[in-house]
Simulated assay, not measured.
Amino acid sequence: MTELADDYRVTRSAAPVREQAVIQLRSLLTRRFQPGDRVTEAAVCELLGTSRTTVREALRQLETEALIEIVPGKGPTVAKVGESDVRDLYEIREVLESFAILLFIGRASEDEKARLAFAFSELEKAHAGGEAARVLDAKQVFYDLLFEGAHNNTISALSQRIYHQVARVRLASLSADRIRAGIGELRVVHQLMVAGSGQEAQEAYAVHMRNARYAAVEAVKRFS
């Protein structure tokens, strides 16, 4: 496991403990574990500060999301993602998120549009800070608001699942050059959305996804 200073302990809040544990465990798998690493209940209990029962439930949830796989004789391990998996996932991302862009333009309220614009400005600030993990977090906020304004829960649920499956690959693929280029590509997409140019925004997003897919595949090759 990579040693990081992040605190993943579950805290008291309105959200159920199990739901918090699932969210934190997803983050752990992205930032502290490597594909193929064994995920022990004891280690996760210590990191999350929760009971074994909660951890077991969270692990089962992540197994259904293809983030965890049960290896005979080894137990829960972080699922591996190959080149073909990445290509498949990014192709589906392009279809879903491109359609979400079109829906957002037609369905989002003025408040939702303003929140998306603010999220993009925060993404640019994260880029200025120079930390890839923070850029990834800021991008996820942007996408969350995109899906919210698209008002299609199915697209949101499917896209979130794909996001978590490729999160580690995305983090590894975010070189300084790719971060800068990717934000520039998204800036064009967002500007076209603001202008109400749906088809042009989708075409610009297709370019963004092709470039992101290439970077992700190259990152997987480095893992192999």
Rank of each mutant, 00 (worst) to 15 (best):
T2Q: 11
D6T: 11
D7W: 13
Y8V: 04
T11L: 14
T11Y: 13
R12I: 06
S13K: 02
P16A: 09
P16N: 11
V17R: 08
V17L: 12
R18E: 13
E19N: 04
Q20G: 08
A21N: 07
I23G: 03
R26N: 02
S27D: 12
L28K: 00
F33R: 09
Q34F: 09
P35L: 01
V39F: 06
T40W: 06
T40V: 07
A42C: 12
E46A: 15
L47C: 02
G49S: 08
A58C: 06
L59V: 12
R60A: 13
R60P: 06
L62N: 07
E63Q: 13
I68Q: 09
E69M: 05
E69N: 02
V71K: 07
P72S: 05
G73Y: 10
P76K: 06
P76Q: 09
V78R: 10
K80S: 05
S84D: 14
L89M: 13
Y90G: 01
E91Y: 11
I92C: 14
L96F: 09
L102N: 01
G106F: 00
R107K: 15
E110F: 00
D111S: 04
D111K: 03
E112C: 11
K113A: 02
R115T: 04
R115K: 09
L116S: 08
A117G: 08
E122G: 10
E122T: 14
A126W: 04
H127C: 05
H127N: 05
A128C: 12
A128V: 11
A133G: 07
A133L: 07
R134V: 11
R134F: 09
R134C: 05
R134E: 14
R134N: 12
D137Y: 15
F142S: 06
F142I: 07
D144S: 11
D144V: 07
D144L: 11
L145W: 13
L145T: 14
L146D: 14
E148F: 09
E148T: 15
G149T: 08
A150I: 02
H151A: 02
N153F: 12
N153T: 12
T154F: 15
A157R: 12
L158N: 02
S159Y: 10
Q160W: 03
Q160T: 05
H164A: 06
H164L: 04
Q165N: 08
Q165Y: 03
V169T: 13
V169M: 05
V169Q: 04
R170E: 00
A172P: 02
D177L: 10
D177S: 12
D177H: 13
I179T: 05
I179Y: 00
I179V: 14
R180S: 14
G182N: 02
G182R: 01
R187N: 07
V188K: 03
V189Y: 00
V189H: 00
H190C: 09
Q191A: 10
Q191K: 08
Q191M: 09
L192K: 05
M193E: 09
V194T: 13
V194H: 06
V194S: 10
A195K: 15
G196R: 08
S197I: 04
G198E: 02
A201D: 09
E203N: 04
E203V: 05
A204P: 00
H208A: 09
M209L: 12
R210F: 12
R210W: 08
N211A: 13
N211Y: 07
R213F: 01
A215H: 05
A215E: 04
A215S: 14
V217N: 01
V220H: 14
R222F: 14
F223W: 10
F223C: 03
S224N: 12
